[in-house]
Design a protein around this nucleic acid. Structure first.
Lengths: 146, 146, 146, 146
DNA sequence: TTTT
DNA sequence: TTTT
């Protein structure tokens, strides 16, 4: 019945997204994301990094495949899913992944350009933003007389 | 550019949703939601309630109109929007609302029945859940061979 | 560096919290939490449950140990942490847990009573709320002349 | 009773934080934050900006006063609070503010330097991160034998 | 293993 | 105006 399963991450990609195309045509993308926490303990600075396995599907995966790269800073919203698989010895193993429902590139626009050539500059992320907007949308209420 | 504007509330409706139908046919629903915080201050228990103005549009509003009522406990996810209007004296005023993107009825199912007659019992919220599921969905990836 | 690692769950405890006391005196509590999602797929209702491993430490664990039980509906906020351990065959394994930073019992107060005897009734959760308030607090700004 | 009131924002400061020191010695900081959403409507790109009133108190305000500036990209977590005040004509008015409980500077470290002189470079934000860590912490469980 |  |  009632349930909420929500994850919010801001971090950097540990590698370029790994892209696969399933038989049905759907795109799936996987990458790791590092979230780092800084705190002081016993007067000393500690930096602690947590690595997350992120999965994106379909349209979101298509956008990610085009615009996300190793090192980019992103905001990700999704849900937790633990799935099992059999390892090489035939033992059941579990992985917990974040199934992304939404993402947002952070940082400077120039950081987000796939290419940064004169004449082409900033096109990349502009399009990315437009596409991401499609996923973020569902807010087209703004045309209402209110 | 990059932006995140997210609100997460769990609270009780202060009144039944007020339903309007716009000329284009879209449904809009408004209600207030109370979130209460308890803490101890100077050794005394304090209960502090915050009131939020919630708006829902279209399909989400239709579901809300059917199943939400004064007193219900609900989880709401949405975004902040401050809009201006002119008061009776013609002065510009501002209100901040939560434009809901998603909601979830909490508590016992029996709490969520509009009617609770023999034969009709539990139909109400069961349908609510099904409908709400439509809005929560976008998770139909589960049919993929993975 | 910059990082956000946040999890928000609303679900039911799958079992009573398992309580341990570490040598230093700190309490640790573990339990599983089910979050259930309902959606319709190909016209049929589907109910999908995800199980989460939740850990609580110290003061939060003490409150949890007193007031949480199998079946309770609870809101939990925390962060993801994946840790490794060696299984019985000496192989490295990984588990992802939600390290709770905050929680909130939902549902009716009567649902939350440990005991419900005349004379003792409601004491349980009333104290729970007071204690939880201590963890939720950090909002003592309210004494300021503003 | 049970309640959750949570806001998560990622956006840019519209102005430098305005700092006040209350009689008791507590620091209060106010600033506006812009969150921008991009979407396509009727095939045209739309950029919509929402402005939020953010308040920070005490230690968090001290850190903000030192390190936040107009234009910075920041992640903020807090709660909604609507308070009333009397305008110049003696009429009751309401403002909704985000009372921040936590924040995180995003973007490149170099973006976060208050000063960027040779020899002093990067000191600013490094210290900011250390201090912010103090507020983010409460995760000192890591010293436990587990 | 929860809940509806 | 909710809820406990």
């Amino acid at each position: 019945m009632s349930g909420v399963n929500k994850v919010i991450l801001v971090g950097h990609l540990g590698k370029d997204p790994e892209v696969r195309h399933l038989e049905g045509g759907a795109t799936v993308v996987n990458f790791t994301l590092a979230t780092t926490e800084n705190y002081t303990k016993d007067g000393r600075k500690v930096e602690q990094t947590e690595w997350h396995n992120v999965v994106m599907w379909r349209g979101l995966a298509d956008v990610a495949a085009k615009f996300l790269q190793k090192g980019k800073l992103v905001y990700i919203e999704g849900k937790l899913r633990t799935r099992s698989y059999d390892d090489r010895e035939g033992n059941k193993r579990y992985v917990t992944e974040i199934v992304a429902e939404n993402f947002n590139m952070l940082g400077r626009r120039s950081d987000n350009d796939t290419v940064n050539q004169p004449g082409a500059a900033n096109q990349g992320s502009a399009k990315a933003e437009e596409h991401i907007a499609d996923f973020n949308s569902g807010n087209a209420e703004d045309d209402l007389p209110f």
